[in-house]
Structures are given as structure tokens and as C-alpha cells.
Design a protein around this nucleic acid. Structure first.
Lengths: 212, 212
DNA sequence: CAGCCTATGTAACAATTGTCACGGAAGCCT
DNA sequence: AGGCTTCCGTGACAATTGTTACATAGGCTG
């Protein structure tokens, strides 16, 4: 699809000035990314920063043994701070970005990130806001892992998921959850069963329904 | 102490252009911070960003119950990214910064951070480099906590400490370590004893000597 | 030296998390 | 229906981490 000023004005209303929108239309590349597709893989160089218009993207952190833990989600009007730093420092990515729900995004070429920074104060603001949000995300993730037990983390995980997909029925297997929380399937099954006993969720194959 | 161009040229050699150094001399405030002093407390507004010339500063993350876990260390020529985001978004600090070893720093007023960003490309570079380093630090911390067990984390902790203070004898109590790793003193004592049995360290009161 | 405070050692037990083994259930395909 | 694959439930046990309780040791102060 081709980007238009009208589309941008509608989706980003008031966030950026007109002249910036015009540049965005020129250099930005609109993309629709299907569920499960990878926006970024660890080790890759990043040539464009994804600016998410709508949808949901999962940011994960891999380790050497092939495990991959969830860091946080990006949603509408978010941008990936990791990409920003990688671009500006031309380093390889240290994270994975997977589309969680069908996502529309604008790919912005690296050069422009820097170029716009001093020419558009709204852009500068946006970039720094992005950094701040990502720091907050990371800190919250760290809090979870350091200070909370698995059952609490699991519940928080489910709630985040619900918030991100806007519906109370999650289509997900225990195995997937286990991977994102960096533990084993059996442990997750056990804890989920506990939550079910407490009346907080309902379990069926490939599906978890939040009740609370 | 009063800042001088000569001092900055010596300590920051080549990193910033002369005109920026001149501004730094004018608006920056040189400070010497003793061990144990707080540069930032959670909940505070931040009016100046600490740019560390020499020494070591510990960045910690508190939780509601008064626990406080170590995130990472800042050393020479580092700046605190948290301060940056807080300033630019005028938000309260979410972390604690404590001086680990006698530190010399330059306090830079908030307004200047933004002001210089577009006027000095070396400054812009520095700011983004700072963000990137802090992201890396946080990611490494997350890796530790998510993927590694306490004994490995403890060893990594000790090694980081050794690297940061440049000597193999650490003056620290088990209790302090326990707090920074968000666990209990007994657990740390147990694991330290294990390390001692393995011949990796030597324990005496208030002191841990690294052997490996 | 006696008294006191802090740091450390350690046993015993509880709780949490990880692993193994296996059985059953749900859905799909032919 | 029968066979196959994937997902889930669960018991049993191991390993790790947390907690309680108390003993001992080092070092300081009067």
C-alpha cells in the first residue's frame, strides 16, 4: 500500500507537524506484517526502524541455549528503541521482534531518524519518549523477574496479554507460555491449574479464558 | 572546585569540541561525591544529569517492600540514562544511584542536555551512546536474572565488583550482597561457602578475596 | 578483660521450581 | 472408526531457594 498524507493525519492526528508527515510519506514504507512474522532477528543489522501504527509486537530476548524470554510488547504508535540504538550505533540487534497480532507499520530509513531529530522538535520528543517508555518496560520486566514468584509473574503475563489483544480469551499453549517465562511446560501447567482452581481462569485445549 | 578548560581537555580528551567544553565549564558544576552518598533517590525530580568523570556509581531498583536490587554500575565517562529520560520527560526517578567508590562528576543542568543536542553533534552522539550502553546493561541484567541460577549470578556479581574496583579484595558483607541480589543473607553465605570450598574465593570477616 | 554489637556458619525444614515419566484427551487425516 | 500428532494433567522425585533458629566468632568500647 502507498502512504498518503490523509492516512497519516488520521492515524497520527496532531502528533507531528505537516512537513514531517510529508517527509514520512516520501521515505516511509508502509508494511502489513502477518501474525508470527519476524520484524527483527538477533544478530541482524537494522536498516529501518519500525514505527507501529496498529497491532502488537512482541520483543524477546534470546540466550545461548535457544531459550527466548519475553521482554515486553509494543503496540500502536510505539517504536522500537532497540532499533533506534542499533541504528544510531550501527550495531547488531540483540533482540527478537515477532508480530503478535496483525500489525501495520511504517518502516523509517535509518538516516532519517537522525536527520529529523534536529529539524523537527516533535520528532525529537517522540524519539526520547520512545526511549523512556522502553526503559520503563524493561524496568517493569526486571521487577517482575527479580521480586516476584512464578505464579504472580504468570498472572501478570496473562493480564498483559489480555490488555494487548483486547479480549479475554487467549489462544496459546502452555508450552509457549513456558518459553516466554523461561521455564518448563509442566510448571506452567501446574500453576495454571492452580489459577483455575482459584476460579481466576478457565482452561481448554489451546485456550485460556480469563474470568477475573 | 572550579572547572577549567584544561581539566576537561585532559579528562575528556578529544571527545567533545572546544566550544562545547567552554560551555561545560560555564554551566557544569564539578562535584566530588564520597562513598555511600546518594546521587539520585527514587521519587525525586532530577534537575541535573550527573556526568561521571571518575569513580563508580551503583544503580539500584527498589520495590515496594523496601528491597533494592542492583541493576548495574556506572564508571568513568558514563552518564546516567535514567536521568536523561527523567529530565527530558520531567518525570520522577525510578531508581537509586549510590556512590560505590569516591566519584568525581560534572552536574549538567537539564536545559543544556536538550540545548546541546542539536548544536553539538559530539554531544548528540554521546547521548545516544549513553542510551545504548544503558540498554545493554539492562539487558545483561535481565539475562542474568532470567537465565541463570543464584550461584552463577553471585559469581558474576563478584567479578563485576572486582572489575569495577580494580582490585581482588572486596570489602563487603554477605548481607549487602544478599540485598543487591534480592535474596537472603543465609543463602548468600551458603553459596559463598561453596565457592570457597571450590577454591574460587577466600572468606574473612567483611572481606572476600577472589582467587581465580 | 567483660560486655556488646555485628557478621558469619550451619542445621533443619519449608516452599518453590525443575525434571522425568507416563497416560489420557482433543483434534486432524484417511 | 482407526491412527497420528500435539497438548495437557499429574505423580514422584530432585534441585534450588527461602526461612527459622541458634551457635560462634571478630572486633570495638568502656
Amino acid at each position: 500500500m502507498k502512504l498518503t498524507i490523509e492516512y497519516l493525519q488520521e492515524t497520527l492526528k496532531g502528533r507531528f507537524e505537516l512537513s514531517l508527515l510529508q517527509e514520512l510519506v516520501e521515505v516511509g514504507q508502509f508494511k502489513r506484517a502477518p501474525v508470527g512474522s519476524y520484524l527483527i532477528r538477533p544478530g541482524e543489522y537494522i536498516r529501518s526502524v519500525p514505527f507501529i501504527i496498529r497491532g502488537s509486537v512482541k520483543i524477546m530476548r534470546p540466550d545461548q541455549e535457544g531459550r527466548e524470554a519475553l521482554l515486553y510488547y509494543l503496540g500502536g504508535l510505539d517504536a522500537c528503541a532497540m532499533s533506534l540504538t542499533c541504528c544510531l550505533g550501527s550495531k547488531r540487534s540483540e533482540i527478537t521482534a515477532v508480530v503478535e497480532e496483525e500489525t501495520e507499520l511504517i518502516a523509517i530509513p535509518v538516516e532519517k531518524i537522525d536527520d529529523w531529530l534536529c529539524r523537527y522538535s516533535t520528532w525529537k520528543q517522540f524519539v526520547f519518549q520512545t526511549y523512556q517508555k522502553r526503559f520503563d518496560n524493561l524496568l517493569m520486566t526486571i521487577d517482575e523477574v527479580i521480586f516476584h514468584k512464578l505464579d504472580e509473574r504468570l498472572l501478570a503475563y496473562l493480564q498483559k496479554k489480555v490488555a494487548s489483544c483486547q479480549c479475554t480469551v487467549l489462544n496459546i499453549t502452555h508450552e509457549e507460555i513456558a518459553q516466554e517465562l523461561a521455564t518448563s511446560r509442566e510448571v506452567i501447567s501446574r500453576l495454571l491449574k492452580q489459577l483455575e482452581k482459584n476460579g481466576q481462569i478457565q482452561l481448554t485445549r489451546n485456550k485460556i479464558t480469563m474470568l477475573a
